[in-house]
Write a protein that binds this DNA or RNA. Structure first.
Length: 220
DNA sequence: TCGACACCCCGTCAAACGAA
DNA sequence: TTCGTTTGACGGGGTGTCGA
């Protein structure tokens, strides 16, 4: 990782990442994230399957109960705590999508890479830092000791250029992944909302029909 | 079983945009 | 103006389904 990079990279074995697929609230590993007591999620780790189950459960209950305030969205707020956002709140963040102020992170990953960052993908003025948890395969550039004082050789310039390119590609790779995740979540939220509104619409039509019937019977 | 097809996810590039 | 971020577009690979 480059010395000036605002993100902190935690490397774990690819096998571990693939096998467990978890986001761990490890204070040592994550630097300054709050402990799990600040999270609405009681466990230390969020497993993919747990998240999916919670998502499904909350999504269906949101629709069944006609509750637009219930929702299965995960966020990390400015204090760093992890929580499930209400659907309505999440929806509101989508209205300013893609630049909403709430931090979000990738829950699903096929290559064991999880990104925790704000939506700009950089440190925020308030001291928020972007976190990355990635596998060794992601390849992090090394910081060369350039204190020799002599002019860099063409070879060194070449190395520097290719290192910069690698870093740029890596950042873009992660950005693309995050962008797709956000887009999917956005679409899912819209679909959720459509379902809720359709249900509401149906109920209102039935209510109107009942009131009309009542009115007709009274006037007869 | 095999080929065609659809679907999904990924990496990369390029353009647009905002911040410094 | 430069640099970093975001996102649409494109092409490639993996997987599931279906009909021959």
């Amino acid at each position: 990782m480059d010395a000036g990079d605002s993100s902190q990279t935690i490397t774990q074995s690819a096998e571990d990442a693939q096998a467990s697929s978890v986001i761990c609230k490890d204070k040592n590993a994550r630097g300054d994230l709050p402990d799990s007591s600040t999270s609405t999620h009681p466990g230390d780790c969020l497993k993919d399957e747990d998240v999916e189950k919670k998502f499904d459960a909350e999504a269906s209950s949101s629709i069944l109960n006609n509750n637009t305030n219930a929702g299965p969205f995960i966020s990390v707020n400015q204090s760093g705590s992890v929580q499930f956002l209400p659907c309505q709140q999440r929806y509101e963040t989508f209205t300013s999508w893609p630049r909403s102020p709430i931090m979000q992170f990738a829950v699903h990953s096929r290559n064991g890479t999880y990104i925790v960052s704000d939506n700009m993908g950089q440190a925020t003025p308030g001291g928020m830092t972007a976190y990355q948890i990635s596998s060794p395969a992601s390849g992090h550039s090394q910081v060369n000791d350039s204190s020799s004082g002599s002019l860099p050789s063409p070879q060194q310039l070449d190395d520097d250029a290719s290192r910069k390119r690698e870093h740029r590609l890596m950042k873009n790779r992660e950005a693309a992944r995050e962008c797709r995740r956000k887009k999917k979540e956005y679409v899912k939220c819209l679909e959720n909302r459509v379902a809720v509104l359709e249900k509401q619409n149906k109920m209102l039509i039935e209510e109107l029909k009942a009131l009309k019937d009542l009115y007709c019977h009274k006037t007869e």
